[in-house]
Simulated scan of single mutants.
Amino acid sequence: MFVILFYMPLDNRAFYTALVFSVAGITDWLDGYFARKLGQMTPLGAFLDPVADKLMVAIALALLIEVYDAWWFTLPAVVIIGREIVISALREWMAELGKRTSVAVSFIGKLKTTAQIIAIIGLLLFQESRDNILYMANMVALYVAALLTLWSMVIYLRAAWPDLTRSQD
C-alpha cells in the first residue's frame, strides 16, 4: 500500500505516504508494547517484527533516494540500509551460536530508530519543498540517524567480536 500510494498521481500523495509510514510505526510500537506488557510474545512475532521494521525503512529510503536523487541523500540512506543487513546477519549468526543476547537492541539503536523515523516521515511529507528549514531539519535528522547507525553497529560488532574471531575447533 505504501509503495502504491507513493507512485499514485494524487494531490496529497506526500501526506498520504507520510501518514501510512507514521501509522505503521505507531502500530508497530503499540504491538510491541502490548505484547510485552500482556506477555503475548511469540517466536513468530519476535522473528517477523524486526524484519517488517527493516523492510519498511529500507523501502521508504529506496523510494526517497529516487525523489531526492543526490549523493548527499543516497549516502546516509545506503549506510542505514547496509547496517540493517549487516546487523541482521550478525544477529542470525549469533543466534546460531546461542548468543543472541550479546547483540540485543541497545539504547543507541533505539535513538537511531527514532531519528530515522522522524527523518523519513519529514522527508516523505515535505518532498516538494527543498529550500526551507523543514527540509534541512529532516536532512540533519537523517545524518544523525546514519551516524547513530554506525555507532550502534560498532557496539554490536564489538560485543560479538570475541565470537567472530574465535577459531572453529
Rank of each mutant, 00 (worst) to 15 (best):
L30E: 07
I65R: 08
D31T: 09
G122C: 05
W71D: 14
M41T: 15
V78T: 09
R83A: 00
P76G: 00
Y68C: 05
I118T: 13
I87P: 00
I133D: 15
A145H: 01
D11W: 10
V140K: 04
F73L: 01
A104I: 13
V144N: 05
Y68R: 01
L147P: 02
A18F: 00
A70S: 15
R36N: 10
L63D: 01
W93Y: 09
A145G: 01
W29C: 15
P50D: 03
G98K: 05
L48I: 02
D69E: 13
D53M: 03
A77R: 00
T74H: 12
A62L: 11
L134I: 12
E128V: 10
Y33H: 12
D131N: 14
T42E: 03
D53T: 06
I85E: 04
R36E: 06
A119E: 08
L125Y: 09
V79S: 05
E96G: 15
E66V: 15
V86Q: 07
A89N: 13
L150M: 12
V57Q: 11
L147I: 10
V20W: 07
L61H: 00
M136C: 07
I133C: 13
P43S: 10
K112D: 02
K37D: 08
R130P: 05
L38K: 14
L64R: 00
K54D: 06
L148T: 07
G25F: 02
V140Y: 09
W151E: 02
D69A: 13
L19Y: 06
A145S: 07
V67T: 14
R100L: 15
I87E: 00
M94V: 01
T17S: 03
M41S: 15
L111V: 11
L55I: 12
S88E: 06
A77W: 01
Y68Q: 01
L61V: 01
V79E: 02
L30F: 09
I65Q: 06
I121Y: 08
D131I: 09
L134M: 14
E84T: 01
K54N: 11
I65W: 06
A89H: 11
I59R: 04
I87F: 00
D49Q: 06
V51M: 08
V57R: 02
V67P: 06
L75P: 04
A52W: 05
A141S: 08
A141W: 00
L148A: 02
K37Q: 12
Q127F: 07
T74E: 13
S88G: 10
W72N: 10
N132L: 13
G109M: 04
L142R: 10
V67S: 11
